[in-house]
Amino acid sequence: MQKNNMIICRCEEVTYADLKKTKEKYNCTARELKLRTRAGMGYCGGRTCRSAVDKIASSLEKQKEKDIIPLKYQPPVRPVSFADLGGEHK
């Protein structure tokens, strides 16, 4: 298997090549890279690929901001069923 075909985000099936190309084309931050490719936006909420997406994006940036987490955390931080969210318990 080629390095470029390597899947980084399993949930959304985003490859290393997808991320690299997008980063080079748009010169984007971690957040923009996420929004453009959907890496980290799947079922697991980015719990597997978050740091990899962050690393690919930050290799362009001169210096990492020390007091801001690059990819924002948003609730729910664990998968919740629709039934539980909607309060329609059975």
């Binding site: 390095k3 980084i8 597997t48």
Partner: peptide, 11 residues
């Protein structure tokens, strides 16, 4: 939590 290290074939 553990940091992932993507390697070809890791899926």
């Amino acid at each position: 939590a553990e940091s992932p290290v993507p390697v070809p074939g890791w899926t």
